[in-house]
Design a protein around this nucleic acid. Sequence first.
DNA 1: CATTTCACCTGGTGGC
DNA 2: TGCCACCAGGTGAAAT
Length: 281
Amino acid sequence: MPELPEVETIARGVDARLRGDRVVEAWFSGEHEPFKTPPARQARGLEGRVFLGVHRAGKHIVCEMGPATGERTRAEEQVEAQWIVHLGMTGRLLVTTPEAPAEKHTHARLTLASGRELRFVDPRRFGRLELRELARGESFGPPGDEPLAIGTEAFAALFRGRRTPIKAALLNQKLLAGLGNIYADESLFQAGIRPRRVAGRLTRAELERLRQALKKVLLHAIRLGGSSVSDYVGADGERGFFQLEHSVYQRTGEPCRRCGTPIRRITIAGRGTHYCPLCQQ
DNA sequence: CATTTCACCTGGTGGC
DNA sequence: TGCCACCAGGTGAAAT
């Protein structure tokens, strides 16, 4: 399940591989629609353009596209469009040779000037592909704040007056961008906060503990993933990634690593939620 | 508006 | 071995 650390790792991997490469031809499958922009328009917009840089914004992989030929002015002024990839649950980006057999559920193939291909594979089709043409100097980003960048005051302000469980609030991408089910559960454990607690009722100390826990857990996961990037840029990052170190996620009934109490599983906002009833009050 | 629920998808799992 | 109900969860639309 690609969340912030996985998407960060994948975006870095794509950037390292594709920066400077040019799209010669773009192919999109017509079946169903994992597209926010019509396939024909995406293909037209991508062909001939160069990957100027790739970065992560929330759970989105943002590819900055620019002209193949052009004056070498400042890079940001060359950005003409953003190709935005959301991996959903099962999306993967693969850098392959053109000869490599196409996997089932391949929805996009970009032929590159370097002779390679960038492929988007997504069995469940929760992923989304979008092309945004930009006015000069314009830039788009998803609405939520970045958990790794937000400060104490702004973080506390996000939850003020909220009557939803803190777990649900953490999953709300309009508040914080990039958190999913795994890291929400892990961070709440790390901070010692019960997932059902009403977000607006958390104390300042608890909120700060949560903010720090988020940073710690996310940075740790990025460190693990960042060291194992390969040509196969997968939804899970590389195998293992972070799952070996989960404290509560999908450990229902198993002993808490801190106190031994069996981990409990409940449902919040329709999502499986795991916590330690003793460590998290 | 804030909040909750549900549909969208396929592959993997476990029961029989 | 096969069949099938069920679960996983990111997101956005619909319902409350």
